[in-house]
Amino acid sequence: MTSARHRERHAASDRSTREPPFIKWTLITVALTFAGLFLLLPLLNVFVQAVSKGWVFYWKSIADPDTQSAIRLTLLIAGITVPLNMAFGLVAAWAIAKFDFPGKALLLTFIDLPFSVSPVVTGLMLVLLFGAQGLLGPWLQEHDVKIIFAVPGMVLATLFVTFPFVARELIPIMQAQGTEQEQAAMTLGAGGWRTFWTVTLPSVKWGLLYGVILCNARALGEFGAVSVVSGHITGLTDTLPLRVEKLYHEFDSAAPFAVASLLALLALLTLVLKTLLEWKTHRQHAKGQQRGAEPAALNSEPGSDTAHFIRPSL
């Protein structure tokens, strides 16, 4: 984590510890070309293709009843999964970050598991568990509960793939903060709940928000896992990403892009929020460092109290 002051030192550093300008600008050019081709162009392409048949067609594609129902279903699924995983993240982070117990490392590994499972395999696992041929299939049929090829299965699939986001974000932050503040609150007479609400939660709120943003982005955009368990019933079990695929297979040139542009806008919104959060926590950190006085080199330890550069998850 680099404080503003550290940056200044970089910038001020003398030419003999930097690359010659020729090399510097060559590297910048290559990197920018790559970023332009691989990041900027695909983004612009979505919006240009979306309106390639004009705005009227664009609005018609979005106002289509099937698209409208896909929007509603996507929001419903995110609305269920994000709060659940957020609650889990807080609960798990409290247990893992504030206490020591045998099997902690194993629990952490299990929390990471969904990152390394292919979304398609996730869907398949749910089919094998809840499907007609699945382990619980006969029992579910008997009681007339439909999970696969219905909304509950899609919710479960989304819960699985977005499971680690909030917890992974909170655990390192809470661990870095230790238990001293909570203990101080308790010596002052605060109970468990009060300590959590007034001490713990405020100090991890930005990390929590960050995790929720990432979790939400994935919940809105999940394709593979949801696709396997949805059954692709138009107007009933299509989310926005599934709707994009369906329109694509209908060989329409603009309609899938129109729907995709909604998702791309959400992605952009995610990026903006994420960047704002990083700046905010960054600035807090820089302030803390300035207060931290003298040896700049010693203070350049990675500050783990902020949500900077969270590595995207698998």
Partner: peptide, 9 residues
């Protein structure tokens, strides 16, 4: 961006 963008898009 590749992380925030749904893979289908």
């Amino acid at each position: 961006f590749p992380f925030a963008l749904p893979t289908a898009v």
